[in-house]
């Protein structure tokens, strides 16, 4: 299975005595956009955190490009090591460097890139791709709108030319039109730059419309997995998440 980029194999995560994830298994194929949808508290963000080694696993393992990156053993990789393997996370709530300008934020994103010419080239690419950021390049990120900050967070994650882009609720707290714009950009990144995308989202319709494969998570268990198209037409999903 060389076309599988990320494999999650039966992972469980516990917060104290509460099990947030129960033996979750899923896989992300190279070149795909995979979306994970679910309600509040279903364990979406926990799953992403587990993938990025920000919470410890109580069972199971995670494999990236055939290498085991996380398991219950203690000597797992740390978040920054995963970044150097080619996984870039856009954290929930964006986590921008608010007191730095857009350009400085992008410089930070390219921390692992040591060639300054490559950084400049990548920055121009980002400014071409997100024209609004180009207008704001000398502005402090604090003064950007929510949508602009989200775009900047995505651009920052792309600066290191990752193989896998992980997005935690990219549409959180944004106006519907902006959300549409952001998902449009995500698709373009996937098509043009061949970056595999794994996103976690509450906005089920938007996520499924813009992805190839979908997973549905409920109280720590994956309850459904199919192509996004099938999920959009699934009666259960329609009733529970799409309000139809």
């Amino acid at each position: 299975m060389s076309d599988t980029l990320l494999t999650i194999d039966g992972i469980s995560v516990k917060y104290g005595s509460i099990e947030a994830l129960h033996e979750v298994s899923m896989s992300v194929k190279r070149g795909d956009i995979v979306s994970l949808i679910g309600a509040n508290g279903a364990g979406k963000s926990t799953l992403l955190k587990a993938v990025m080694a920000q919470v410890p696993l109580s069972s199971g393992s995670i494999t990236f490009e055939g290498n085991e990156i996380c398991s219950t053993k203690k000597h797992g990789r740390t978040t920054h090591q995963l970044a150097s393997l080619g996984m870039a996370l856009v954290p929930e709530g964006r986590h921008v460097f608010a007191d730095m300008t857009v350009e400085e934020n992008l410089d930070m994103g390219a921390f692992l890139v040591r060639d300054s010419k490559e950084i400049d080239r990548k920055k121009e690419e980002m400014f071409d791709f997100f024209p609004i950021l180009s207008q704001r390049r000398k502005q402090k990120t604090r003064s950007l709108s929510g949508g602009e900050q989200q775009m900047m967070a995505i651009a920052r994650a792309l600066m290191s030319s990752p193989k896998l882009l992980l997005l935690d609720e990219p549409g959180l707290g944004l106006a519907p039109l902006i959300v549409q714009d952001i998902f449009h950009k995500i698709r373009k990144i996937n098509e043009e730059d061949k970056v595999t995308v794994f996103l976690v989202e509450q906005n089920a319709r938007m996520a499924l419309k813009n992805s190839t494969t979908g997973y549905v998570i409920e109280t720590g268990n994956i309850v459904l997995s199919d192509t996004s198209e099938n999920l959009l037409n699934n009666e259960k999903v329609k009733a529970a998440y799409l309000g139809e």
Partner: peptide, 23 residues
């Protein structure tokens, strides 16, 4: 580069880590 990493840690540790900085 070192100063850049330190500034990133000061501003936001989560973001610093996700950008590959060994906090």
């Amino acid at each position: 580069r070192l100063g850049r990493a330190m500034a990133a840690i000061r501003e936001d540790e989560v973001a610093a880590q996700s950008n590959g900085i060994n906090v």
